[in-house]
Design a protein around this nucleic acid. Structure first.
Lengths: 189, 189
DNA sequence: ACACAAAACTAACACTTGTTAGTTTAATAT
DNA sequence: ATATTAAACTAACAAGTGTTAGTTTTGTGT
């Protein structure tokens, strides 16, 4: 897994363009222009457009998987696990919003084995999250609403947080974490 | 505003393809193929690809604006207004998930005046929502968290609901509304 | 049966797409 | 200095894009 400096630059520039316009609306010439080189020169560093997307999406998906496994297998209570998950999402949002945008919006443009393994990781992640919620309900820590409703109301918020963090980016991360955990767990009224 | 039957068919088919692959990944030939005709024949009914996107996104945006104006100007309490907004989003999700996908994912591919008026409607919508939340906080009906955090945790959930409703689509709409309102307002613990 | 309009067709356009081949320039090591 | 390698370049490709022009088919009302 050797990744040259130039390759990282290309991926970074591409991810910024993908975030604004989406994978399909960004051409190799767009990426090259931003770097001040010609499109053909990109191929000295990367295999192709697909590889950029794969790296962006799969690397981040692996990071989520790793974090989830660590939290899920810990000795924390369900509620504490959810708190940790919320904080992990916020940390990733703050440091990697471009890759997160690609993961959210452009994963379906992956191909072959990459697409398969992404979907598998995503399903596993959700299944782990669901189990934590169910354990909390069985536990009486969490109210007895439909687990699916709880799952997606939390996950939707966390997944699209990157859209808001850039717009109203002045929020301090620790304030955000504190209020976010409170709103998602204890409600607003 | 005359819209022929065939034109409606084209828009419907296109919206389904847009939902799965995104505006830019769907060609006029894809749309035509689905309808069993040639791409050039589409132009007997529509002005172009952009028109399809405009109709999908702007019509729905207008519907949201209308609903918001009605609710915001009512005599309900802030909390009741939010309840109504949640129910409106769920109703629209259930009946128009394809257009909602385009509004969420492909609005940035609108051009010129259409893009401008979309952004204006979207900003107005959010500003109205924000005002309701602030009124609730001033009111002591709503807890004193950062209004922005409350706003986007609710809106994110509602906007991406269409993704879940198709996957786990067996949820009864009234159960969904009830649990959703409860989770978003009263929290889960 | 005939005229007319709606809606399909074929063929082509100008342009953009990702990518490859082959070449030249720049940087580094001996 | 010279050889080697990395990284840029030019030029072009085959395929796909949205769209237009002109023509034929289909359906409807008289």
């Amino acid at each position: 897994m050797k990744v040259s400096v130039r390759k990282r630059e290309i991926i970074k520039v591409a991810s910024q363009l993908f975030k604004d316009k989406g994978y399909n609306a960004v051409s190799m010439r767009d990426i090259a222009l931003e770097l001040g080189i010609k499109a053909a020169s990109l191929y000295n560093h990367i295999e192709g457009k697909q590889e950029i997307l794969s790296i962006l999406v799969l690397d981040l998906a692996k990071e989520f998987t790793l974090g989830m496994n660590k939290i899920a297998s810990s000795e924390l209570s369900p509620t504490q696990k959810i708190e940790q998950l919320i904080e992990m999402h916020i940390d990733i949002t703050v440091t990697q919003s471009e890759a997160l945008a690609a993961l959210n919006n452009d994963w379906m443009h992956l191909e072959g084995e990459d697409l398969k393994s992404f979907i598998e990781m995503r399903d596993d992640y959700e299944e782990n999250f669901r189990s934590i919620i169910k354990a909390g309900i069985a536990n009486k820590e969490i109210k007895n609403y439909h687990p699916e409703v709880i799952l997606f109301s939390i996950l939707s918020t966390l997944r699209t947080l990157y859209l808001w963090y850039q717009k109203r980016g002045k929020l301090d991360v620790n304030v955000l974490k504190k209020d976010m955990v409170a709103v998602l767990l204890k409600g607003i009224i």
